[in-house]
Simulated assay, not measured.
Amino acid sequence: MRLLLLSGRRLAAALPALLLILAGLFLLLQLAPGDTVDALVAQVGGADPTMIEELRRYYALDQSTSVRLWDYLWRLAHLDLGQSAIYGKPVASVIAERLPVTLLLMGTSLAFAIPVGMVLGIVSARRVNRWQDTVISLLGLLCYATPSFWFGLMGVFLFSIYLDWLPSGGFETIASGLTGWARVLDIAHHLVLPTLTLALIFLTIYLRIMRASMLEVSTLDFVRTARAKGVPETRIVVRHVLRNALLPLVTLIGLQTGTMLGGSVVVESVFALPGLGRLAYESVMQRDLNTLLGIVFVSALLVIAINFLVDLLYARLDPRIAGEG
């Protein structure tokens, strides 16, 4: 029951934050040069003033900022994200087409980065100040200091151009007609490079956090007591050290959800993936404000949902959190 109350409070606190994010972004976009009509006119090579005025009236750009903000929030309360000016269909449909690609990319990246980072962090902590710790720490520092787009470009050069092992971009083979498991394997083949590119930087962060947490927990009194009682070292690491060392890592995973969404913009652009990140970039370049606001809304909901699940997991790992609730 206490866990449910804690969850309800976290969700209630997230709603004002979501409202402030959307309202703040809407106001900031009004300060940016150009608007949807300017982008449309530039695409067709120009238009007469009468047509431009009609377009501004059609997209409600002739109204004041406060009126448009209120209208947007009112439509949002009814789950209406508006119409995409560039794609000519509802924003919800555009996002629904792109969201699975981003979720799949994020899911596979996390599924690779978390366990590998944990294992390397545990090995580094168990072999602290030895050659294993030095090698792992050095490689982690190099990966963390290297921009993700450079990893992507070098991966394309090495594995796609030079070795011809992996596709250089795209989500699947165009017009292949594949279905079932053949299509799944084709998509997995295309996602190898993007997944590794996005996962490497986060893997190094998880590695460092797990190493530091393991070293810190290993010096606590209850661990020394377990060793004094003769508890096997493997059981001490798994049952006592690892469970407590996971708490900072779980928190970090929730906090970095937004960072991973931002990183997907770069990765999807490098590998031409039709996901939310690339859609956000195209919306900014084409001044499609409705689509951009819809992407931010969906991304904020995704971050809130993941942080909510992380809070529940954190309370499960540390019962004191639920007890204080």
Rank of each mutant, 00 (worst) to 15 (best):
L215S: 10
V135F: 13
A42E: 09
V67E: 15
L279G: 02
I306M: 14
D186P: 02
A12Q: 04
I136L: 15
L309W: 06
L6F: 06
L25V: 11
I306W: 11
K89Y: 01
G46D: 04
N129E: 15
D71N: 13
T65E: 15
G262H: 09
V135S: 07
T36Q: 10
L312N: 12
A305D: 04
G177F: 07
L69E: 04
F159P: 04
E216C: 02
L261H: 08
A14L: 03
T179S: 12
I253N: 11
P167S: 03
R126E: 10
R227Q: 11
Q132N: 08
P16I: 13
L120W: 13
Q30W: 02
L247T: 01
R320V: 00
S168L: 07
D318P: 02
M214G: 06
K89L: 08
V265C: 00
Q63W: 10
V37I: 11
A272I: 03
L273E: 08
V116D: 06
L312G: 10
G140S: 11
P90Y: 01
L313M: 14
A199F: 02
L293F: 07
A23Y: 00
V37C: 03
L289V: 15
D311M: 11
L302K: 02
V128P: 00
T108F: 01
T204V: 11
F222R: 02
G180W: 14
S64G: 12
P319T: 00
Q132K: 02
V192I: 14
A305P: 06
P16Q: 15
L301G: 13
E233M: 05
T179M: 07
L103T: 12
L61A: 02
V128T: 12
A12R: 10
A175E: 15
P33V: 12
L61Q: 04
S283V: 08
Y72I: 06
L40K: 04
V231F: 01
L138W: 10
L313A: 15
L120A: 11
S137V: 05
G169K: 07
L120F: 15
